[in-house]
Design a binder for these strands. Sequence first.
DNA 1: TGCGAATGCGGAG
DNA 2: TCCGCCTTCGCAG
Length: 272
Amino acid sequence: MPEGHTIHRLAARHRALFAGRAVRVASPQGRFAAGAARLDGLTLIDTEAYGKHLFHHFEGAATLHVHLGLYGKFADGEPPVPAPVGQVRMRMADERHWLELRGPTACEVLDPGLVAALRARLGQDPLRDDADPRIAYARIATATRPLFALLMDQAIVAGCGLIYANEVLFRAGLPPTIPGRLIGAQRWDELWSDLRALMKEGVLSGRIDTVHTAHTPEAMRRAPRVDRHGGEVYVYRRPGQPCLVCGTPIARGPLAGRNLYWCPACQASAAG
DNA sequence: TGCGAATGCGGAG
DNA sequence: TCCGCCTTCGCAG
């Protein structure tokens, strides 16, 4: 779930449900008691996604900040609220809808200064119109770290997660371990554009599908391989299986503490 | 029934 | 670089 496209979808969903309305906010689990007490009864002004971070801006300049982490999940619906399953960190509701949050890494109320500080340490979000890929490239162009690690660095590219990082590198034909400083400006522009297109498609469809999102002609006639998340991917979680383009077994290895997947043949060249 | 892994991240070492 | 955390799910036993 939680790559940037998911958070942008949630921001839009929560805006549609609650923006402009006074909401009840509760802490069924007890771990969000102080925050819930501060927000309860206030009007939600607007919602916003920045990378993998979700913000609910309330009247009075209080902002609810949520980061789902690896396990966090939202659910919503119309009354009545269903019987509780597991631990509910936060519940938000008005007379028309309820919203529940479970298992997040972060669920806290922030003042404007802290929101600004948080945003300041995030890099460029491909899904935001105010993103500037040249700011990200300034970091890429001087980096000795692998390009894969740079894409995963939220201080450089905000919102790109493991699946998008693996898949965009495959689509670019770039070896994941290539140092950032070997990536030319034009190559970076192409990579950024492709990542942005993939993530925008993800926002629209609610799933990551890197095979059927506009790519090369030969890519469009691959046998579909549906993964657990409901999308179709070239390399992510396909170790040992044949590359959809050339048939070479997909390789897998740890990099920067994460699972890296790549086609040794299609991504062998460092040219570009 | 219990274990490990999972789209993430931060802190300790 | 490793570990712990939070929760859910699939699979082995």
